[in-house]
Simulated assay, not measured.
Amino acid sequence: MKNTKLFKLLAVVIAVIMVVGVMAACSKATDADKGVTEAVADAANNADNGDSDDTIYRTLDQIKKSGSIKIGVFSDKNPFGYVDENGKYQGYDVYFARRIAEDLGVEVEFVSTEAANRVEALQTGKVDIILANFTVTEERAQQVDFALPYMNVALGVVSPSDKVITELSQIGKDDAVIVISGTTAEIYLEENNPEITLKKYDTYSDAKTAFENGQGVAWANDNTEVIAYANTVDGYTVGIPKLGSDDTIAPAVTKGNESLLNWINDEIKALADEQFFHKDYEETLVDTYGKDYEEELVVEGGVIK
């Protein structure tokens, strides 16, 4: 009997010691333990959001709750996206970006982006939307989700006025054409004219400087951009105003972000009632292109005529 009572008492003491030990261990969790806990919580949160392991995005509700939206735009591509002398973002895409933020009831946070990193910026969660003169292509549509279009575009080629390139066959084997990495111009020429030497630059400003310094006999880019360039810089002519197929420019969101994509599509449709993109054109592009290009370039309500 005495042995039985002793064993029971010993069992109780051992149990108490184990409980105290567990509590002490919990109260002294290391930073590494906390990091694991936080990582698990983050993974659970991403799972709730429908995020995959390699893409990150904020849903429409999360953006609204945060009070701001991150929109990727160009900072050196006048008149579509650029920073003016006062340090403020301006341009056709920027005008639209501000309206998106206004109608969402949040602040807009502009994120400067380059052509080559637009897809990556979405996939890594750096931005919520890309509005950086982004041409819709089948290849890109496999990586991001495009909303309805708001502008027409094709490829064009600009060259010095004293030696205008009107056909690609004029470009010799020792000549080079300047392109910006990650653009449809680069993709088109590599696929259709592999015999042409390309000089690639990451930024619009670097490509412009190289072209003006004679690093290439021509510059291939969106026709909207080369026309704008020739209209504002003396000594250059758009000898090929249209190269390849007619395309469109549209907002892009991270693949699978349906709530934000659907909202943008509804927004574009609704803005047609006030002819918003015509107003955008007249505020930001008319000084560059004049009225003659307005109907050719502008797409209202996502409907291509």
Rank of each mutant, 00 (worst) to 15 (best):
T4S: 14
F7I: 14
A11G: 03
V12C: 05
V19E: 01
G21D: 00
M23I: 14
S27K: 06
K34V: 12
G35L: 03
T37S: 11
A43H: 08
N46V: 14
A47R: 13
S52Q: 08
L60T: 01
K64M: 09
K64H: 10
S66D: 14
S66M: 07
S66W: 08
V73S: 07
D76W: 04
N78R: 15
P79R: 02
F80K: 01
K88S: 12
Y89T: 04
Q90T: 07
R98L: 06
E102F: 12
V108C: 04
V108T: 05
A116N: 12
R118N: 08
L122T: 07
I129E: 00
A132I: 04
T135E: 15
Q143H: 04
V144P: 03
D145W: 00
D145T: 08
L148V: 06
P149Q: 00
V153T: 09
K163M: 09
L168P: 15
G172A: 13
A176R: 10
V179L: 04
T184K: 12
I187T: 14
Y188S: 07
E191Q: 09
E191F: 02
N193S: 15
L198A: 09
Y201T: 09
S205F: 07
T209N: 08
E212W: 07
E212D: 08
E212G: 13
N213A: 14
W219Y: 07
A220W: 02
N221V: 09
E225Y: 05
I227Y: 05
A230G: 06
A230M: 03
V233T: 05
K242Q: 02
D247V: 10
A252W: 01
T254R: 03
T254N: 12
G256H: 07
L260D: 00
I264V: 02
K269N: 01
A272E: 06
Q275K: 11
F277I: 05
D280R: 13
Y281P: 10
Y281G: 11
L285Q: 07
D287G: 10
Y289T: 08
Y289A: 03
K291L: 13
E295R: 11
